[in-house]
Design a binder for these strands. Structure first.
Lengths: 210, 210
DNA sequence: AATTCCGGAGAACAGTTGTTAACTGGATGA
DNA sequence: TCATCCAGTTAACAACTGTTCTCCGGAATT
């Protein structure tokens, strides 16, 4: 795999990445369904027709952005759920990790939150599929936990989805509070931690009722 | 207050409602930030300039749609949370009510889910404010429950937000499954019910840990 | 009955949009 | 070295956008 990319392909990937970056920046203040092809090429500093060398349409670009925003997130999710330690420690670490991710990639988080229910079908589907993959991975991690003894597959999956949705809600709240005073950010952290704690308690007593 | 609206004002409200209806229909396949003024007037069958007699901009129209979609929902939420009966009955009734609402007003639900994180700031804020009002109302309903004895205000509010967010997630899932086979809809119902059950269990044992 | 009010129409404005076709020039492979 | 490839350019297309100004005709007010 030490095949150095030719000058040509390297240049192509470079401008492709420029398209993704420019689009992500433009999407800070609008939705994908209003993102114009010319708008993006103008931001990149390239002729409008150059767009077609990389994407069929802006919807196509959107799907590529989904991969960029969520594709590299899988290892993080796995390690987050599977970290050992006290339940309280794990919650604190999960919230901390979400916070850091939002701070590091705010535009990615905004894009996913916005387009998850947005006006472009292929993008919605791409996000839905990726989130389903996340849920499946979380489920297998949960299944490895001794606490999961006696749980049905359905119940494990519903808990996994609950965690994934909660993760997204929390990320979105952190995003809104990004430029807010420290006190507000702390409020979000505490509420997210308590909600996770309540879910954790519900999980502990799930089998009590039989 | 028995002042019958003049022919003039009545006609104005009528076309205003026509604007709202047409916009809601057009927003089934796009986001508000890509909704054009002329597009709406064309759908209503009216001159483009007529738009300005009712709204300053499409963002303004969006805020009006938020009021229409969420404004009339408050009594329902109150009664949903405060219905008496077994915990299991209450959960079943809540899920049933969400399902019925989605079936009755799918376009409204879609609009809220889409624009909650959408590209138009004033609309996002309007939705956020309304949802905060919902959470506050749910909180006061929860406080009336004997089960809430010993709960802090902060904890009650975090639980209320958890319920509100869960309601929205569930509504969005019902929306996606609207035209799906009955089996899929039933899957959504069951998962939503179980998630509410887990939250309810967590609520029951919240004070155990001190 | 005369006057004011006002929701909507009409025309025109400069700018924007997506998409097509034919072209250029440097990297690529024979 | 020479022919081929292909990312990006240029030019042009009809169609669309938000907004302004002027006007109309029926309702509302006096």
């Amino acid at each position: 795999m030490s095949h150095t990319l030719g000058i040509r392909q390297a240049q192509k990937q470079k401008t492709r990445q420029a398209f993704l970056d420019a689009a992500l920046a433009l999407l800070e203040e609008q939705s994908l369904s209003s993102l114009g092809l010319r708008e993006v090429t103008r931001a990149v500093g390239v002729a409008p027709t150059a767009f077609y060398r990389h994407f069929r349409s802006t919807a196509d670009l959107g799907v590529a952005l989904v991969d960029e925003a969520l594709g590299s997130l899988h290892p993080m999710v796995r390690t987050t759920v599977s970290t050992t330690g006290d339940s309280e420690e794990r919650i604190a670490r999960a919230v901390e990790l979400i916070d850091q991710h939002v701070t590091a990639f705010p535009a990615h988080v905004r894009f996913i939150a916005r387009e998850r229910h947005g006006g472009v079908q292929p993008v919605r589907e791409a996000i839905r599929d990726q989130l389903a993959r996340f849920a499946a991975e979380v489920k297998t991690e949960l299944a490895n936990d001794p606490e999961a003894a006696g749980w049905s597959d359905d119940d494990l999956l519903m808990l996994a989805h609950l965690y994934v949705d909660q993760m997204l809600i929390t990320a979105s709240l952190f995003l809104e509070a990004l430029e807010a005073p420290r006190a507000e950010r702390e409020r979000v952290r505490q509420r997210a931690a308590r909600q996770l704690r309540l879910i954790s308690i519900g999980r502990d007593h799930w089998l009590d009722a039989e």
